[in-house]
Write a protein that binds this DNA or RNA. Sequence first.
DNA 1: CTGTTAGCGCATTCAC
DNA 2: GTGAATGCGCTAACAG
Lengths: 302, 302
Amino acid sequence: MRVRTAVEKLSYIPQTAARHLAQGKTQTIGLVFPDVSNDFFSPLLRSITDSATEAGYDLFIAIRRQGQTSRVQRSTLGKQNTDGLLVFDQSIDEGELRRLHAARFPVVLLYRSAPEGMAFPCVRIENRSGARQITDHLIEQHGRRQIAFLRGPAGNEDSLLREQGYREALAAHGIPFSASPIGDGEFYEGPARATVARWLAEGLEFDAIFAGDDGSASGALAALVEAGKHVPQDVSLVGFDDAPVARYLNPQLTTVRAPSDDVGREAIRQLMRLIETGAADSITVLPTELVIRQSCGCPVNT
Amino acid sequence: MRVRTAVEKLSYIPQTAARHLAQGKTQTIGLVFPDVSNDFFSPLLRSITDSATEAGYDLFIAIRRQGQTSRVQRSTLGKQNTDGLLVFDQSIDEGELRRLHAARFPVVLLYRSAPEGMAFPCVRIENRSGARQITDHLIEQHGRRQIAFLRGPAGNEDSLLREQGYREALAAHGIPFSASPIGDGEFYEGPARATVARWLAEGLEFDAIFAGDDGSASGALAALVEAGKHVPQDVSLVGFDDAPVARYLNPQLTTVRAPSDDVGREAIRQLMRLIETGAADSITVLPTELVIRQSCGCPVNT
DNA sequence: CTGTTAGCGCATTCAC
DNA sequence: GTGAATGCGCTAACAG
C-alpha cells in the first residue's frame, strides 16, 4: 500500500517507548559488568554489541562495583525494562540472582556457573584443562619444578578452576605443592607485580610462574625484570586469556587462548533462545587452546 | 497517604516504557564509542555510569566501528529513544552529527571539538601544553635532541594537538624537525612496536621517543627492549594519558596525566545541563599534568 | 487485503 | 488532600 512506501521515504523512526509498551517487550538486553578493566573486556563488549545489534536488540549497560547495588540500577535492570540480562562473573550477588530466578527472568551467566538450584544458562571457558596443559608444558618441556601461581580475585570461578588444573599437573608429576609459592594476582598488573616483588624480596624460590591471567602475567614480568631476573632463562612465565597484551610483552607471553569473542556471541545466542523458547538448561563451555610463545622458554619458531 | 507507604513496602518497580511514553522523556542517554580498547576506556566508562546513575539516567551503549552505521543503531540512538548522546572521538561521522544538530538533539562531544558551525558542547583535555611540557622536559632536563614522535590514529584530534605541542617545543629550542623520525603508533601497542622496530632496523637515530599515548609507549618499550636498547639510558621514553599501564612498565613511564574520570563526570554534567536548559555553548578543556617517573631518565625520587 | 479501534501502564490534569 | 479521566504512540485484534 501507499503508506508503506511513504514511510520508507520519510525516514520515519518509530518511538521505542510506545512500541515497547504496546508489545510488552523491550527489545533490549541488559549487561551487568563488574568494575574491572581487564584487557579482554573490550573485545568482549564489541562481540556482544555486534551480536545483539544483529539480533535486533539494544543494549543497556551497568557497571557494578563489588557488592554494590544502587536502587536505580536495580529498577532499571529489572524485568520491566529489559527482556533479559547478561551477568558477568560476580557482578550481582546471589540474593539478586535468586530473585531473578524466582521471577523466571531470562538471565545468562558469563564466566561463572549457576549457583546451586538455579538453572541459568552459562557460558564459560575451559579453565581446568587449559591450566593443566600449560603447567604440564612447563614441567615436561622446560623441566620446571617450582612453579608459582598467581591467583585471581577471591571467589572468582575461573581462577579457582585454573588453580585446580595447576594443582592437578603438579600432582600428576609428583611435585609437592609446598615447593612453590601461591599468591594473589587479582587479575591485575599492580597486585601481581607487588606479590612477585615480595616473593623475590623474601628469597622464595621458583623457576616458573603461572599467572592466573595475562594482566597479572605482565605485572609478574615487570617485577622479575626489575629484580634483574631473566625471562625465560631464570624464570619461565605463562599466563591465561591470550589478551592483546600477551603479544606485546617481551618476551612474548605463552598463554592459553580464551575465545572471548565466542563467549560474547554465544551468550547472546543463548539469551535469545531463552527469551524466545524459555529453554534454560544449557551450559556452554568453550574450549581453550595452548598458545606457545617465548616466555616459557620455547624458541621463536615453535 | 497510605498508598505511598504500601508502594514502598511492595518493592514495586514502575515500567519505564510506559513512564517514558507518558512523560515524553526516556531518562536514558546513549553512549557512542569507537571500536577501540584503550586502556583508559574502562575507567572512563565507569565514571560515566556512576555519574549517569547518580543523575537518574540509564545508559544505552553502541560501539561503532570506523565509519560504520547500522540501521538499527541509527534508529535506536535517535531522539526517539534517548534524551541525549555522548559521542566519543570519531565514532559518528559528520553527516550524522549534522542531522543531530539540525534536530537540536542534545549531544556532548568527548575528546574532540565540534565541527565548524555546530555548537555542540565538548569535553576535551589540554593536549598541546601537556605535550609541550613533556617534550621540554626531555630537552631541558635530559638533554635530548632527537626526539621521535608516535602519532595516534589518522584524524584523531588529541594526536594532532599533541604533535603540535611537540613541534612547538622543538622549535622553541631550535631543534629541526628533520632530525627525528615521526611515525604511526595508532594509540596501540602493536603498531607502535612495529614502527619503532622498523626505525631501529633502518638505523634511524633518536635519543628519545614521545609516544602519543601510553599504549603506544608500551609498544615502543617492547621494541626497544627487544633490540637491546636500554630505557632511559640509551633512549628516553615518555607517553600521554597516565593510563594504568604507565605504572607497570619497567621503567615506570613518565607521562602526562589526562583525568579521564573528570572527563566522564563533566560530560554527564554538560549533557544534563543541555537537556534541561538547552544551553549548548560550553567547551570544557580539562587541565593535564606532567607525571615524572623513570622512563625519561629521572631518578626514582624526583 | 485495508481501515478502524482498543488498550499497553504510566503521568498528568482535572474534579471532588 | 484523594480519586477518576485523558492521552502519550504504537501494535494487535478486529471488522469491513
